[in-house]
Simulated scan of single mutants.
Amino acid sequence: MHVALKFKMHTLKMVITGVLLLFVLHSCSCTTYADQRRLHDLIKSSFDPRIRPTLDQTKAINVTVIPHLSAFIKLDAREQILKTSFGLELEWSQDIFTWNMSEFSDMDMVTVPQEQTWIPGIHVLDTITTFTPLTEASEDLMVLLYSNGRVKLSVWFNLDTKCEVTITMYPFDVQTCHIIIGKLYDTDKKMIMAPETERLEIWNRNHDEWSIISTGVKQYVYHPDFTGIAIKINIRRKPAFYIINIFIPIFVLCFLNILSFMIPPECGERISYCVSLFLTLSVLLNAVSDSVPKVSNVSFLQVFVILDIVFSAFITIMSIAIVRYEHLNRHEDVCDVRRDDRPKDEFNDANAEKSNDVSSNVVRLDFAYKVDTYLFRGSVLVYILAIVAFILICYFA
């Protein structure tokens, strides 16, 4: 009896151990190499990359597009080219092949090369470089195939697209760039593209010159038989560089130009001082012209610099006129001194005339100083109004 009891206890332990082992194996649900190989062979034999994966070929395949802006590289304003780094996530359904997860060790998803299955031919229609389909640009693309028939594909690429730049408010401008993604061969009867969201997902917003203010994604009909995706990106230029390196130096030069009215008219350096500032502004205008895009419309920055040059030219002309006026008066004084060398009997009459001429010269010199004062006050008023207008434009731009 004792031996039989031991045998029963040993049998019970073995049964419990076996049950626990089966439970652990069942909970692991380990995927075997044989299951993977068998599933890949079935997929390879089921798909034909040349034929759309739908049993009813009269039905269109709906492709959901999820765009991602991974990096905003550059907007070349002179060439009007937008450089970005983009990503597209494509999702669609196929009904020619599904599998039961329980028959393949609970595998829900498998990765297959792109040449083993059908993928949509998608192009960037406004690119300025190669016109290769995005899904064929790389040979190592992998497709995610799910057991319920869902298919996912991710494509990443660098884009050079055309972007029309408007420089009217440059450098306080806001630009809108569009990227059109569509099809060339599959009409809407075969494939329909639609965005998942109305906003572009942005991974990196940091940029030295531009800031992204808004984005938009919508379905876009660019041909009666073709529907694509239109991506809109609104960007604003950061004007700090231009304010520090162009606007502030111009305001300083204009203020120095106004100070020329404080130089006495009889000083010989007044005209050279004004001409030097005028030439400095002219050189600055050339530097500004090199940085502005070569388009037909005129920018705010160009108008600003041109008005400053006109303002400087006006001050230079007025300074020349005042110095010339004072020089003529001085020349008349010299002539009067030479006429004083006369006989003694005419000396009294000459002194009387000289006293009248001196009084007249004092009046003329006083007139020159008054003109300088009025011009200085008027120039300061114009200068203050220009600063106020500039601040308002910076605030509301």
Rank of each mutant, 00 (worst) to 15 (best):
V174G: 08
I243R: 03
A368H: 02
D186P: 01
V24K: 08
K162V: 14
P265D: 00
A389K: 13
F376L: 15
I167A: 14
K344D: 07
F278M: 09
R339H: 12
F251M: 07
S29N: 09
A389C: 09
H327I: 01
F367C: 04
Y220D: 05
V298M: 08
I391M: 07
D290A: 15
R342Q: 06
V337M: 12
I322C: 00
I258K: 02
I192D: 00
A60K: 00
V3Q: 05
E353P: 04
H123Q: 06
A77Q: 09
L82T: 06
K238W: 07
G87C: 10
R150S: 02
K354M: 07
D35C: 15
L153F: 08
T187H: 06
S296A: 13
K6R: 13
L277N: 11
D366I: 06
R364K: 08
F347W: 06
T227V: 02
W203A: 15
I258Y: 01
S282C: 08
R377H: 10
S45G: 06
D308G: 14
D345A: 07
D290W: 09
V3S: 09
Q94R: 00
Y222V: 13
K44Y: 11
V143M: 04
L134S: 05
S45P: 03
L285D: 05
D76Q: 07
V358P: 01
I43E: 02
S260N: 04
M1A: 11
T58D: 03
D108R: 13
F311I: 04
D126Y: 10
D340V: 07
V65D: 02
P49H: 05
Y146P: 08
E332H: 02
I246G: 06
I122Y: 03
I202C: 12
F376C: 14
L144D: 12
V217T: 07
S138D: 06
D345N: 05
S105T: 07
W92D: 01
M101Y: 05
R342Y: 05
E198L: 13
K152H: 12
Q116S: 15
S299D: 03
L256P: 02
P133K: 02
T111A: 13
S214W: 05
Q36S: 12
K59S: 01
A60G: 00
I231C: 11
V337I: 12
I16R: 10
T127I: 11
E79S: 15
G216L: 13
V382F: 10
S105K: 09
N234R: 10
R78T: 11
P293Y: 08
R339S: 15
L381H: 05
M142Y: 10
K190G: 00
N361D: 04
R330I: 01
A240R: 13
E269G: 08
R150V: 03
W210P: 05
I180D: 04
D173L: 11
S359H: 10
D160K: 14
V143G: 02
S319H: 03
F72G: 09
I119N: 03
G18D: 03
Y242Q: 11
F311P: 06
D345K: 00
K6Q: 08
T58N: 09
K218V: 10
T54C: 01
Y369Q: 07
F367A: 05
V380R: 04
I16W: 07
N234S: 13
E139K: 15
K370T: 02
D357P: 03
S214M: 06
D366Y: 09
R50S: 06
T31V: 15
T84S: 13
R270L: 01
R270E: 00
M318V: 11
